[in-house]
Nucleic acid binder design. Structure first.
Lengths: 208, 208
DNA sequence: TAGATTGTTAATCGATTAACAATC
DNA sequence: TAGATTGTTAATCGATTAACAATC
């Protein structure tokens, strides 16, 4: 069954991990009811989702908090270290470089790239900004597995190509572009203006 | 039929808007095939989605580029101005304040809040940082309709409550928290570490 | 045993897509 | 008319959830 977790379930695992990490320290087990409450989903959803991960809950008792946390971390691959490279040292790129949530769970920002000559060579939070041309060598040398694209849209595809060519198989894309890439490369897109536009749509219907 | 567009379709409208805005300037019409190609979705999907917006395409011809663009902008509410307030003047908040994509389509950042006394009163990009306590009055006075939460997780709920009390009905939440809020308040969550964790999951399966 | 709570089934719901008649 | 391309149907697929037997 390994590897066959539905995508909707995978997307909720980080949420469950956060929720199970936040239960009271004296609490040994927790119920699907409780997790559902704090995750904001249906209890049946929680049970179905958690039935995909290995050591199961116990009927009549619930889920062992420490065990569930460990299982989710393992399942999500957080027991390994992940080395992250960020392209684009503008406001967003710098904010991401210093984002506390990154280092919290084994994600390590080990490289920062930009194309602007006035930025190249400067230091952000112990990292030196390097030019795009060096992505290939640096990504390989520092064993980067995740590439983050925080460049303007016109540079996004070039940077993605360089990442992919250097062996990166996971990309987090903040640029408002649909990236072309070979099969086997996973891209997640986070688009701030898209989110705002969706909010604007619902604003028109509801409250006003 | 107004107001009954499926959520999955709504979430793709911004993408179509971007794609139709990017066709060659000499091109008068475009096909679902072409839009699908540049949006990275199925052509049948495009036709189904666009069948929800009003002036339809023309069989045998396609969609009028200028008209489709206008319709999508109207449908998404981008013909109105949207006033945005950002809570949290850390790296992320500052990056968002200066994010070019915000002002591009009628989203205007008109207030910036923080709780840190050393930040309050400083200026970021023509805005003065104000304390959380003033959210109520300022949001009302400046007619803010969208609240952005870029605070640490522990301040997120308090800020959300203040936004909601001040009449904000649309919230974009960057804090890793599930916000409690009354019905009628639309929240979209953007969680960077969740995205990384999902990538980490797939990394474990595919490429390695 | 009685109470609690899971895992799983089956029903429902919503989203995607192939296929094609409609029609420019 | 012939070719192109939509709008829409119907089939399929995947996700959600109520219900309940299993079982601690």
């Amino acid at each position: 069954m390994k590897g066959s977790i539905p995508t909707a379930t995978v997307a909720r695992l980080p949420l469950y991990l956060r929720c199970v990490s936040e239960v009271a320290p004296d609490q040994v087990t927790c119920s699907s009811e409780q997790l559902a409450e704090s995750a904001g989903v249906n209890p049946a959803q929680v049970r179905k989702d958690l039935s995909y991960v290995d050591p199961p809950g116990v009927r009549g008792v619930g889920y062992d908090v420490a065990e569930l946390r460990a299982v989710l971390r393992r399942e999500l691959g957080l027991t390994r270290e992940h080395r992250v490279a960020i392209a684009g040292a503008g406001n967003l790129g710098n904010a991401l470089t210093m984002y506390p949530g990154f280092n919290e769970s084994g994600f390590n920002v080990v490289a920062l790239f930009d194309t602007d000559p006035t930025k190249i060579g400067t230091r952000i939070d112990s990292l030196t900004v390097e030019p795009y041309e060096t992505i290939g060598t640096i990504v390989a040398a520092r064993d980067v597995s995740i590439g983050v694209i925080a460049t303007p849209v016109k540079a996004a595809q070039e940077v993605a190509d360089r990442f992919v060519e250097a062996g990166v198989r996971s990309i987090l894309n903040f640029a408002p572009a649909v990236l072309k890439r070979p099969a086997g490369v996973e891209v997640r897109r986070v688009d701030l203006s898209t989110e705002l536009q969706i909010l604007a749509y619902y604003e028109g219907r509801l409250g006003g």
